[in-house]
Simulated scan of single mutants.
Amino acid sequence: MTALGSVWATGQTSPRGQLRQGPYISATVHDADRVPPAVARLAIDHLTAAGDTVLDPGCGAGTVIVEALRAGRNAIGITDDRRWWSVARANITATRRRTDAHTDALLLDGTPRRAAGQLTGMTGTVDLLLAGLRPTPALAPADALRRTLAHCLPLLRPGAHAAVVLRTTHDGPNFTDPIDDAARAGQDAGLLLVDHCIALAGQLRGDRLIPPPARQFRSPSTGSLGAEFHDVLIFRVPDRPLASAATRRLPRVRSTKPPSRTATTLREIACAA
């Protein structure tokens, strides 16, 4: 497993070009809070190994799930939005038709709290939680993230990682930067913040950053412009309970994994769901 580095060249292909490579169905573009496929793929490649399990507790249109399958990982997606459930299911089906990967995908309809209850048979087996920061009607995004991480933490094995992709936005004069709140949410859930990376949304040519065309960079649903990068916070599940809050900020550490045993478990849960 090689080091990720602090800056990710994840914008070499345009946002729409990444969706075409999936292939993703056309409705995927309307999920403005999706994790960009290139960002998901890089995180999955570097933070997991073949046969590992990736969880997205707010999967939306399913980009994390698709990229996990394409990388030879098992995948679990959760969403309580029926519109995105249908889109994610269609994307998973299209991916399975195109790839020969012998991995499993499980898509659950419901909240992370409800889904975590359905996944008790997988306690301590998930290798990576990878999710975007999604707005909710009842809670601020950071509060929703805090609850989601708390519900999903029992599913993660000791030493596993959780990566949260933050979409900084520009809406006229307003600038939204949720990084501090998201970092606190992860630490409040009991995770160790080990890295903060920048995933570029524009193309890197030498030392110049070329932003994608505005028509591909503007949210179809809100009309607001995204920033030229995404912040990615990488947390790690402690090997044992933390002694105190003072130990929660540590340098990056190398991950070690027990032998994967999740493929059979996923199939069993899928049959029972």
Rank of each mutant, 00 (worst) to 15 (best):
R70T: 12
R70H: 11
A71Y: 08
A71K: 04
G72A: 08
G72Q: 05
R73V: 08
R73T: 08
R73C: 09
N74A: 11
I76W: 08
I76H: 04
T79C: 08
R83E: 00
R83L: 10
W85C: 09
V87M: 06
A88E: 05
A90T: 12
N91S: 10
I92N: 04
T93L: 10
T93M: 07
T95C: 15
R96H: 11
R97F: 06
D100F: 06
A101D: 14
H102V: 11
T103M: 08
D104G: 08
L107M: 09
L108P: 06
D109E: 13
D109S: 12
D109L: 14
T111P: 03
P112D: 13
R113H: 15
R114C: 07
A116N: 00
M122H: 04
M122P: 00
T125V: 10
V126T: 13
A131H: 04
L133Y: 03
R134A: 14
P135D: 05
T136R: 14
A140E: 11
A142V: 14
D143I: 08
D143M: 08
L145S: 09
A150T: 08
A150M: 04
A150N: 04
A150I: 03
H151I: 03
H151D: 15
C152H: 01
C152D: 00
L153F: 06
P154R: 03
L155D: 01
G159T: 00
A162F: 02
A162S: 02
V164T: 03
V165K: 01
T168A: 07
T168L: 14
T169L: 13
G172A: 09
P173Q: 07
N174D: 14
